[in-house]
Amino acid sequence: MKNFTNLSRVMSGSYLPLLLLFGISVVNAIGMVVTSHILNPLRPTPQKLMPYESGMIPLGDTRARFSVKFYMVAISFIVFDLETIFLIPWAVQMRELGWSAFVAMSLFVIILAVGLLYEWKKGGLEWD
């Protein structure tokens, strides 16, 4: 029961304005695109509808293969963003938790730092 009252209080109190703001923003975003679609003169020609590549006639497929480095960045991001997520609850409660939690988090950070160092030395962070 306690959870339910808590939830309803939260929903009625502080999250309602967010919903309203979200509604206004979405209406605004859709309105902008739709209004301009109604108002603007559409006179398409084949040349106008070509992808703009500095006046060249586009060659090859756009959805071409791209560097694997972007994939490496994505994976590293997941690791270190998760680390941030783990650090935030501890940071908020750090002064109450004291030294034992600090030592535990230091170990956690050191393990990830070693991981970063390994990726660095392996050349995973290079863009050549």
Binding site: S36, H37, N40, R43, K48, L49, P51
Partner: peptide, 13 residues
């Protein structure tokens, strides 16, 4: 101006 300008929608998009 931006509301009244013509928009392009690339054929391949």
């Amino acid at each position: 101006k931006n509301l009244l300008k013509e928009e392009t929608l690339p054929a391949t998009a």
